[in-house]
């Protein structure tokens, strides 16, 4: 192979089906899917993985991930994943949830899964709004950000403040690994991929709950071109939600 002139630099991940994504042009959900699939491939986990799709734009994630999948009610994915993991402790179980799903309707489920140190991996897509239902305010919506339910911009007096879920969950003793990453450029994407892989490794080590918060774009509802949305992600969103590793209690670090 080394003698050949053509070298494959990016193949099609085995953990993705060949179904074309339904996401809007420039939406980073697709990139996040690919990163999850690549991590599963790299660790050889596809055949022992059960994914849990949530309710949001990624509701059809089960059509894209080429592994066993369950589709959960809005916000309940961590509870569903808990049920699966307790029955199949040797399986790899992950949820894929948006910010409305995880940080609003499903707050109780995520907090308690994390507090229990439930040995699952959560991929949390924070695009600062409710994408699927048409761009309403989410708990993560930034102050001043216009959404269809904050037409003049989010006002703290009326709508309260955005929630930093990663930081909030990092106060608990249950999590083994919590990181926030962003998808605004190639370098950031590579870093995001590493964090996602690390989160699955934490689960394989049985270290406890792992979550990667992925700052993501929603060009459609932000009313921006894909390129502008990436810029906004880097300059504005990632300013408020700082990327980095918030918790790491995995062996590699401890040892």
């Amino acid at each position: 192979m080394s003698a050949g002139r053509e070298r494959l630099v990016a193949g099609y991940p085995e953990s993705l089906t060949e179904q074309a994504f339904h996401y809007c042009p420039g939406c980073t959900h697709g990139i996040a899917h690919r990163l999850v699939a690549e991590a599963l491939d790299a660790l050889g986990l596809r055949e022992r993985t059960i994914g849990v799709a949530s309710v949001g734009c990624s509701v059809f994630a089960y059509n894209y991930f080429n592994c066993d999948m369950q589709q959960a009610a809005h916000g309940r994915a961590p509870a569903v994943a808990t049920g699966i993991k307790r029955v199949l402790p040797d399986a790899v179980v992950f949820t894929y949830q948006g910010d409305g799903d995880l940080a609003s309707i499903g707050t109780a489920e995520i907090v308690h899964a994390a507090a229990r140190g439930e040995n699952i991996t959560v991929i949390f897509i924070n695009n600062t709004n409710y994408g699927m239902t048409g761009g309403q305010m989410a708990p993560t919506t930034l102050i001043g950000q216009k959404t269809t339910t904050t037409p003049l911009g989010r006002v703290a007096e009326n709508n309260g403040y955005p929630i930093r879920m990663a930081e909030m969950l990092a106060t608990l003793d249950g999590p083994a690994y919590i990181a926030r990453v962003s998808l605004h450029n190639a370098q950031a994407v590579v870093q995001a991929g590493r964090s996602i892989k690390k989160a699955f490794q934490a689960q394989l080590e049985r270290a406890g709950f792992s979550m990667v918060e992925v700052l993501s774009t929603c060009p459609t509802n932000w009313g921006m071109t894909p390129v502008k949305a990436l810029e906004h992600l880097e300059k504005v969103v990632a300013e408020y939600y700082r990327v980095g590793v918030l918790v790491d209690r995995t062996k590699e670090v401890a040892g």
Binding site: V80, T82, I84, L88, H112
Partner: peptide
């Protein structure tokens, strides 16, 4: 077996969903 006290009945029934989907009597 496993007994787990959930954080609410909402979570408990969704844990049942996951466990039943994983093939267990629950």
């Amino acid at each position: 077996g496993v007994y787990l006290q959930a954080e609410s009945e909402v979570s408990a029934i969704n844990m049942v969903y996951g466990a039943a989907g994983a093939g267990a009597r629950v």
